[in-house]
Design a protein around this nucleic acid. Structure first.
Lengths: 195, 195
DNA sequence: TGTACATCAGTGAACGCGCGTTCACTGATGTAC
DNA sequence: TGTACATCAGTGAACGCGCGTTCACTGATGTAC
């Protein structure tokens, strides 16, 4: 299949290649030419599918948000009967897990100078992801919220796990091992509920 | 002074230039040549002071951590008599303020692939910055900690403000205005203490 | 006070590199008849 | 079943660009005597 003139699934192959490049050499190493090289195709082929470099990364971010949103939803649903606190915790853990397991997606998704964040599809899907968290928080009653604004509770949860994820990915937590990270987040959550 | 052969303060001028570049065109636009251009000096001059590009950014990060650490310390000291919770809050607010006001520093400091994070000076000074937060938390008694580990309390505070800062800088909170950000963080803190 | 000399800071030409983008092209595929 | 033709996917040469790094150099400064 590799010596066919038509690749057959080049768009997907290129996006896979982007993920590999980021995983192996970091986000700065992404280029149309390198993606083409990895997909075994001429350097000008990517422009056919994505227009330009930004287009390629926008498509990549879209893929990421799709998987991300699904995972958030599944995580929230799985513990739906254990209460809202359990849902918040499950979403948080899954958020971190995604950041670690799917680092290339995570980085492109949240670095808006890399993609076209005015793209309507991307706006829709990223907004939907946040909606999973918001709908959990909005379903909470005043007693569970402790009288706080739903938005503040949601932002508090989001920023905490996002902060842990970015600190981890940026190497600021190099003192901890990979497994420590998840006991750490559990400890952070517990410390919060205790105070 | 601009037509002198010796600049007199080129090292500083180059680091200033790096800050301007990031502020205006983003971290991806930093280059030795552009920094030299802005400092009004030949393109090969920066190598004299920093060795290579990574060296220049390492020096830049060092400067950032220096100012950062001082600001954290001042913020903590100013409200030292109002109790530990006030100190945590003041550090958090100052953290965000630094991220917004000194964005170029913040970005290079926390993106470890940009600089040489094995540099001993940098390790020392960044470790010291974290020490400001840790020493506040470690001075808290069991009653203020609510029985939680000091490290977990510290990481919770750090990751929350760091998450807010990075989400803000990356444009994920574009729904909020610049001022909203600080009322938001206050709301997040309050929501936490309420629950 | 003057002179010789070492040291330091900055120059400018040159190199090779990988990149994004454009464009006329060609090979393969599918569809209409 | 065969043929003509349109459409689509990928090619490869070419362009101009900014970059990091090297290196022999030159101009300015400071110090010893």
């Amino acid at each position: 299949m590799s010596d066919k003139y038509h690749h057959g699934d080049l768009r997907n192959a290129l996006l896979e290649a982007v993920g590999e490049i980021i995983q192996e050499r970091g986000i700065g190493a992404v280029s149309l030419r390198e993606a083409a090289r990895r997909a075994g195709v001429s350097h000008s082929a990517p422009a056919h599918h994505f227009g330009d470099k930004r287009g390629m990364l926008t498509a990549f971010a879209g893929r990421g948000f799709e998987e991300f949103g699904q995972r958030m939803q599944v995580a929230a649903d799985e513990v739906a009967e254990e209460g809202f606190q359990a849902q918040l915790g499950a979403i948080g853990i899954e958020y971190l897990r995604f950041a670690v397991e799917r680092r290339p997606y995570f980085e492109v998704m949240f670095r808006s100078e890399m993609h076209d964040n005015t793209d309507p599809d991307l706006k829709t899907i990223s907004h939907d992801s946040f909606g999973v968290l918001m709908s959990v928080v909005e379903a909470m009653g005043p007693e569970e919220l402790g009288g706080a604004e739903p938005m503040h509770v949601a932002m508090g949860a989001w920023s905490t796990v996002h902060g842990l994820a970015t600190l981890w990915l940026d190497g600021a937590l190099s003192q901890f091992t990979d497994e420590d990270l998840f006991t750490l987040v559990q400890g952070v959550f517990d410390a919060r509920n205790a105070s």
